[in-house]
Amino acid sequence: MKWRSAYGAGPWHLVGLAACFAVAGYAATRVVGAGILIGFAVWFIGAVILHDLVLWPLYSVADGVLRRGVVRTRPPRRRPAVVNHVRVPVALSGLLLLVWFPLVLGRSEGNYRSAVGLSTSPYFARWLFVALALFVVSGVIYAVRWWAAGRSDH
């Protein structure tokens, strides 16, 4: 009991942590051996910062703005809410851009052309096409729900 109150968990907790840090520490020595420690560490810690302190705040604020913007155009009672029909296509096209921006925005054009023998230029139109399709599908589903909600009123 003394151990638990001083440490905050059982002894196996510490054994597990020690094993985790031992393996991670050994892998870190291999990173040092490969001569890439600084760049690796910057990108590794940068990955945490990128997600927790850049990406998450950005999409949270964007979602808040979107919700307040959409709610101002609140539909009449008993009609379905608009919010998710904007939120989902915005988020999904944003996700595709987040993952594929080097192709969509032509950022890897030089390497890509030298390797593949083709240009990255079609990717922007493809992304735009998928994004538009997402908005159209979302809009059609909304129209159907609107119509169905109206029918169930009668």
Binding site: V23, A24, Y26, A27, A28, R30, V31, A34, I36, I38, G39, F40, V42, W43, F44
Partner: peptide
């Protein structure tokens, strides 16, 4: 990235 992909992705995986 300022490193070769192979060692970074392999050692990153083990961490």
């Amino acid at each position: 990235f300022p490193f070769s992909f192979y060692p970074a992705h392999l050692y990153g995986a083990w961490i």
